[in-house]
Amino acid sequence: MRDELVARLTNAPVVPLVGTDDADVAVKTADALAAGGLSVIEVVLRSDNAQAGMEAILKRCDDVIVGAGTVLTLDQAKAVHQAGAQFIVCPGLVDEIAEYCLAEDVPIYPGTMTAGEVQRAYALGLREVKFFPASLAGGVPMLKALGSVFREMRFMPTGGVSAANLSEFLALDSVIACGGSWLTPKDAVASGDFAAITRLAEEAVSIAATARS
């Protein structure tokens, strides 16, 4: 799974965030994103029934890699892993969650925003981390500084990333992919305008292709 995840992010280095209490809507959103070329999806666990949406996508969507985001505790990490999550994303760096994922060989992207946090992740054995919240944590200039020091580390900036600045982040060699909720706007999800979500995904894939060329 790790190799397939890396391959897909190399081809389309954008991870859209999906968050809804309705499993059917989650599936339709994932299908719309995949139709636009984005087949690595992070389901954010910010509501009581979000995990049900993740499980529905895993069961009903073909050829989509599905991770769990906003994982806050070790128990939560264990629960989503057992439910089938193929990677885990956290807003911050928690040693016991990172150690569990390393032991289980589950790709994990813990949130970091300082040199100290990145160094701690490196010491734990991680080589890929989330950079969050990207825009507030210093954006592209901060990533350039971190990348120059931690040459083996790769970052997934999330938080404040959009179609307007996606190419700037992806132009950095240290960025493995960008995550963002701009691809699944609440109004489009609420109104069932999944064609709009597909168009946003297609736009992101196009931007990424140009940035990485």
Score class of each variant (00 low, 15 high):
6 V>H: 09
7 A>N: 12
7 A>V: 04
8 R>A: 07
11 N>I: 02
11 N>L: 14
11 N>F: 03
12 A>V: 13
14 V>P: 02
16 P>R: 03
19 G>D: 04
20 T>H: 06
23 A>E: 02
24 D>W: 00
26 A>N: 01
30 A>H: 01
33 L>M: 03
34 A>S: 13
36 G>N: 03
36 G>K: 00
39 S>H: 03
40 V>S: 06
42 E>H: 05
47 S>Y: 07
51 Q>R: 15
52 A>K: 15
53 G>M: 03
56 A>H: 01
58 L>Y: 02
59 K>R: 14
61 C>W: 05
63 D>N: 15
64 V>E: 06
65 I>N: 07
66 V>G: 05
67 G>E: 09
69 G>P: 11
70 T>I: 09
70 T>H: 08
71 V>E: 02
76 Q>S: 13
77 A>Q: 09
82 Q>C: 00
82 Q>D: 15
89 V>H: 03
89 V>C: 11
90 C>V: 09
91 P>K: 04
91 P>D: 12
92 G>F: 07
92 G>A: 14
99 E>Q: 15
99 E>H: 10
100 Y>I: 11
105 D>K: 15
105 D>S: 14
106 V>C: 11
111 G>L: 07
112 T>A: 09
113 M>T: 10
114 T>P: 05
114 T>W: 11
116 G>D: 12
117 E>W: 09
117 E>G: 13
117 E>D: 13
118 V>L: 12
119 Q>H: 12
119 Q>R: 12
119 Q>G: 00
123 A>G: 03
126 L>E: 01
135 S>N: 11
137 A>P: 04
138 G>R: 04
143 L>T: 02
144 K>D: 03
147 G>R: 04
148 S>M: 07
149 V>E: 00
150 F>S: 03
153 M>C: 13
153 M>Y: 06
154 R>F: 07
155 F>T: 08
157 P>Q: 12
157 P>I: 09
159 G>Y: 08
160 G>S: 10
161 V>G: 02
162 S>E: 10
162 S>G: 11
163 A>E: 14
166 L>S: 06
167 S>V: 09
167 S>T: 14
168 E>N: 15
172 L>A: 08
173 D>V: 08
175 V>T: 05
176 I>W: 01
176 I>L: 15
178 C>F: 06
179 G>F: 09
181 S>K: 00
184 T>V: 10
187 D>S: 13
191 S>W: 01
195 A>L: 10
195 A>G: 11
196 A>W: 00
198 T>M: 06
202 E>D: 07
203 E>V: 08
205 V>F: 04
208 A>T: 02
208 A>I: 03
208 A>C: 03
